[in-house]
Simulated assay, not measured.
Amino acid sequence: MDKTDRTVTENVLRQMSVAGVNLDDLATAVSLTPRALTRRLTVGSFKVRELGLIAHALDCRTAELLASNEGAAA
């Protein structure tokens, strides 16, 4: 998994926590099996359409899932 994939995975997991959405519910919302969603989170291979659906399900912008946290204040 490259740096961008890691960033997306971290952001998806963070937004899941903020939204209080668990993996099974998110998978259902984006028409994936929990296993397929877990694989994408592990491998970091999301399709653009999936990121849009995830953002919608988590009530955030797709850009928030793509944004790098480098340089952010700790």
Rank of each mutant, 00 (worst) to 15 (best):
L32G: 06
T9E: 04
K47I: 00
K47H: 14
R49Q: 07
A73E: 14
R6L: 04
S17H: 06
L65D: 07
N22S: 11
K47F: 14
D5G: 14
C60G: 01
G52Y: 11
F46K: 09
M1P: 10
I54M: 07
T7L: 12
Q15I: 06
M1A: 10
K3Y: 02
M1I: 03
C60V: 03
V8N: 10
E64W: 09
R49W: 13
G52R: 01
A74V: 10
H56C: 13
E50F: 07
T28Y: 10
N11M: 03
R40L: 04
S17N: 11
T62F: 12
G52T: 11
L26V: 00
V12R: 00
R61A: 13
D5M: 12
N69Q: 12
T33H: 02
R35V: 12
D59G: 01
A72D: 14
T9C: 03
K47W: 08
T28R: 13
E64R: 04
E64I: 06
I54K: 01
V8L: 05
G71V: 03
L26F: 01
V21R: 03
A67S: 13
M16A: 09
E64G: 04
T38S: 15
L51N: 04
K3V: 03
M16V: 10
C60Q: 02
L51W: 01
V48R: 13
T62A: 04
V48Q: 12
R39W: 05
L37K: 02
D5F: 10
A67W: 01
E70F: 12
M16L: 09
Q15C: 08
A29H: 09
G20K: 03
N11L: 04
L66G: 01
V12A: 05
S31I: 06
T38E: 12
K47V: 03
L23I: 14
V43M: 10
T38W: 08
L41W: 01
V18T: 06
M16I: 06
M1Q: 05
